Computed example of a mutant assay.
Amino acid sequence: MTTGEQDAAQDDGSGLGALARALLAVERRSWPGPGAKERAVREQLGLSPTRYYQLLNALLDDPRALAHDPVTVNRLRRVRAERERRRR
């Protein structure tokens, strides 16, 4: 995540900017069907799905994200690790 994106409307006390908190909030939700999450990402966050996943992947390595939402971050880290294992 770039400094500008991170600083945009910074800080609820977690050390995470508004965008980082919004990314985690999107991942906490369950989605009804294919395309719903990507549509919400475009409409609510103004990001392309590709950029969203780039930012989310970087966020998973941020200790502040883990402190802010450990359940979501740990779940996403497990999913990422499983995908990496399958690629090998």
Rank of each mutant, 00 (worst) to 15 (best):
G46M: 05
M1D: 06
D11Q: 13
Q6F: 06
W31D: 03
A65I: 12
E84R: 14
Q6N: 10
A65K: 11
R75C: 00
A8C: 11
E43T: 12
D7G: 03
G4S: 12
A20T: 01
S14H: 00
T3P: 06
A8Y: 14
A40H: 14
L56A: 07
L60Y: 04
L55M: 08
R51Y: 10
L76I: 07
L47V: 06
R80N: 04
G4Y: 01
N57I: 00
L47P: 07
R77M: 06
Q6I: 05
A22H: 03
D11C: 04
N74W: 02
R64G: 04
L19F: 01
L19Q: 01
P32Y: 05
Q44W: 09
D61L: 07
V71S: 09
V79A: 08
R39S: 09
Y52P: 12
A25S: 12
L76T: 08
R39Y: 01
R88L: 13
A65D: 10
L16N: 07
V79W: 06
Y53A: 00
A18W: 09
E27K: 13
T3E: 09
A58F: 02
T50V: 14
Q54P: 02
S14L: 10
T50N: 10
A58I: 01
A58M: 02
A36P: 02
T3R: 13
